[in-house]
Amino acid sequence: MARMKFLCDGERCIHCSGCVTACKNEHEVPWGINRRRVVTLNDGKPGQKSLSVACMHCSDAPCMAVCPVDCFYQTGDGIVLHNKDLCIGCGYCFYACPFGAPQYPSTGNFGGRGKMDKCTFCAGGPEADHSKAELEKYGRNRIAEGKLPLCAEMCATKALLAGDGDMVSTIYRERVLARGFGSGASGWSQAYGEQKRERAREGAGAPKDK
């Protein structure tokens, strides 16, 4: 079965924020929430590059591990989704996520944050596909329509890739070979490097990377 992954090619991203706008418009994301955002590394210095960042749908998702009400689940395609009916807005997932993906609609008195919102890989939520409830809570379900996330499809320079992990890595590898250099797949080892994390959990007796 295909494993869905995101990859942002730092050599191609021009920080146009087209992905951010496409996501907000497609899903009618509430004011104050950005499911996707573009960050600039080494701003104004040699080696400056921009990256489009959102939920990476990690293999061993830390948000799933820390959620006290177990509102996260992973689909067969590896997409990490959550149930807004179960979410209590505690914010644990926000602190656990290495990509800062979970967002909250409000900062009220007594720590009230509202229901967490994050990238769904355009795959909706636990409600029935294309239902009104799914559209209102999670946005459009493009995956069920046989499409890919709009942020990637809309990307003008095709810096942002989304879809089957094997296909995405093949496309990126071909690019690196063609241009003769590549800065690496940002976030991939953290999001999809499950073997390393399993070894780390096993402890000191486990073989170490050289």
């Binding site: 395609d77 795959a123 636990p126 995956i143």
Partner: peptide
Amino acid sequence: TRNGAGYR
């Protein structure tokens, strides 16, 4: 209700 069509 987790009966989504999934990636195709």
